[in-house]
Write a protein that binds this DNA or RNA. Structure first.
Lengths: 212, 212
DNA sequence: ACGCTTATGTTAAATTTTTGTCAATTCCTG
DNA sequence: CAGGAATTGACAAAAATTTAACATAAGCGT
């Protein structure tokens, strides 16, 4: 029963709010007003209030927002109060880099398995996680209650693998491959298209140059 | 002399157009209509025409768009017709992963140098590029005409390093550190906040679950 | 060469997103 | 404990983005 569709624009801003609130909290600051946050974050106070009110009234008139409480609430909204169990498919440099990123684990994203089609890297251990052959993937997902798969393999392999993952009942895919995955709607896909990002930077470089 | 401000929403879609046009071209397809592209890409034909017309009339009425020509034009708009010279600051797993990604070089993004503050990794070679100490960075940028720096270092170091880079006259920063960099407006910053992306996925997982 | 079909470029409408405003509520001081 | 200051939540206005509609231009077949 979807209450009212919440735009991805709003969702996309939540992690940033969380980040700044975490910093304030770590500085020992207990309360903050939308105007103060606005000054720090360089977005309008109106947008902050609007965004937060999408999910409920977390503030108090005349007082502002309680930093710790707001931090927790946004965390809950983002699903950080539960644990997520992930596997990484593709034990190349990028896959390894992600496994080694300990910040994710701190947020409840647990890397449980690593898979690769290359027999030469299978058996190798990365941060205490063994690389397994692709054949074991389906079973592993079911046995270890995996909900997210991270795709760090070349694009031609990615499409087929994504379909396998879908068939295994995976809930979400964090896709670093440079293709758009076409999967059933109940499977959430979040794309990280690095080359797209680099091209945007390139555009903005050219564009700012012209505007001399 | 900025003609008219082009929205980042449009710019953000260009790389995706480029990708699909490249695929069509590789299949030997010479012409395509906005409606055909619409079917393939799952966006409205209207949006495609609107987006393309932001930059000029690349199509022909009654015919459609010439795939090769449109591909080239979008490439030019994105600045892919020129070479970009990059350095990577932070030779950790992520930095190494990016150096090894050959696709970027094919697009004209040349990795020219690698820098790290850890003396233990300095001197090491990654894909024929030696890791240099941070002290050499400023000189290197000037000597090798570097325009883009890729920041793959922890966030506390990132802020200070970004300021150094700005002082060296860098044009753009591709920022993988989990902070917002505050730099003079003429320096373009493109952020890749991986944990934000993962949190979005997490939100969408929770959200789709609720909507059972 | 003519007319029908196709498909763009452009303008207008609809929708979404962002910003501004203000009454209502709570805090805080004297 | 009363009154002024502060700040939210809600609503309204403005801006931006997306979609629709259509006149116009070019292709294509006969």
């Amino acid at each position: 029963m979807e209450e009212k569709e919440i735009s991805q624009a709003v969702v996309g801003r939540l992690p940033r709010y969380l980040r700044y609130l975490g910093e304030l909290r770590d500085e020992g600051i207990e309360r903050v007003s939308s105007q103060e946050l606005s000054d720090i974050m360089q977005v309008t106070a109106s947008q902050i209030r609007q965004d937060l009110n999408t999910f409920g009234g977390f503030g108090q008139q005349g007082y502002g927002y309680n930093v710790g409480h707001l931090y927790d609430e946004i965390g809950k909204i983002l699903g950080l109060n539960r644990e997520h169990r992930l596997i990484i498919v593709g034990a190349g440099h990028l896959g390894q880099a992600l496994v080694n990123y300990s910040n994710f684990e701190r947020r409840g994203f647990l890397f449980c398995g690593l898979f690769d089609s290359d027999p030469k890297v299978c058996g190798k251990k990365i941060r205490s996680i063994a690389v397994r052959p692709m054949e074991e993937m389906a079973g592993f997902i079911r046995d270890h209650n995996i909900d997210i798969a991270v795709l760090t393999i070349p694009k031609n392999a990615a499409v087929e693998t994504a379909e396998q993952l879908a068939a295994c009942g995976i809930k979400g895919i964090w896709n670093f491959a440079h293709v758009d995955l076409r999967l059933p709607g109940h499977i959430q896909v979040e794309n990280v298209h690095l080359s797209d990002s680099l091209m945007k930077l390139s555009y903005n470089l050219s564009s700012s140059e012209e505007a001399t």
